[in-house]
Write a protein that binds this DNA or RNA. Structure first.
Length: 112
DNA sequence: CCTGTGACGTGCT
DNA sequence: AAGCACGCCACAG
């Protein structure tokens, strides 16, 4: 048994993203041991009800906020939250991943 | 059981 | 740079 159908692992990783940093869906999936499961991460967050999880720090590989169905306002909230944390968006509404993407320190040290 | 859909990613045109 | 197609996994109907 090595297929964690439970999303707890994914949520845990998302919760590890430090303030002012962002991660991609594929990155989370990979850290969760599910390469290619970027979609699963998105789905996991979509069914997420826990407000304690900083889901707003998760963006797509382009460094842009993925348009989701249902609530268009959510995307707006996400952007505001990120800007509040110090993440800057360019004129195209994209984040410079080379600058804000969460990088696990080799020393496993958190910045918070 | 099969089909469609979804907060994705990568490659090619 | 933008758009399209295919691959990926989980879940609802």
């Amino acid at each position: 048994m090595k297929s964690p159908n439970n999303y707890s692992h994914i949520y845990s990783i998302v919760a590890c993203i430090p303030n002012g940093r962002v991660a991609t869906y594929g990155q989370i999936a990979r850290l969760a041991g599910i390469p290619g499961g970027a979609r699963l991460v998105g789905y996991a967050l979509s069914v997420l009800a826990d407000r304690s999880i900083p889901w707003h720090r998760v963006v797509n590989a382009r460094g842009e906020i993925s348009p989701r169905s249902g609530s268009v306002t959510a995307g707006d909230v996400q952007r505001l939250r990120l800007e509040e944390e110090g993440v800057q968006f360019d004129r195209q509404g994209r984040i410079v991943l080379s600058r804000y993407q969460w990088r696990q320190q080799h020393g496993a040290r958190q910045i918070a």
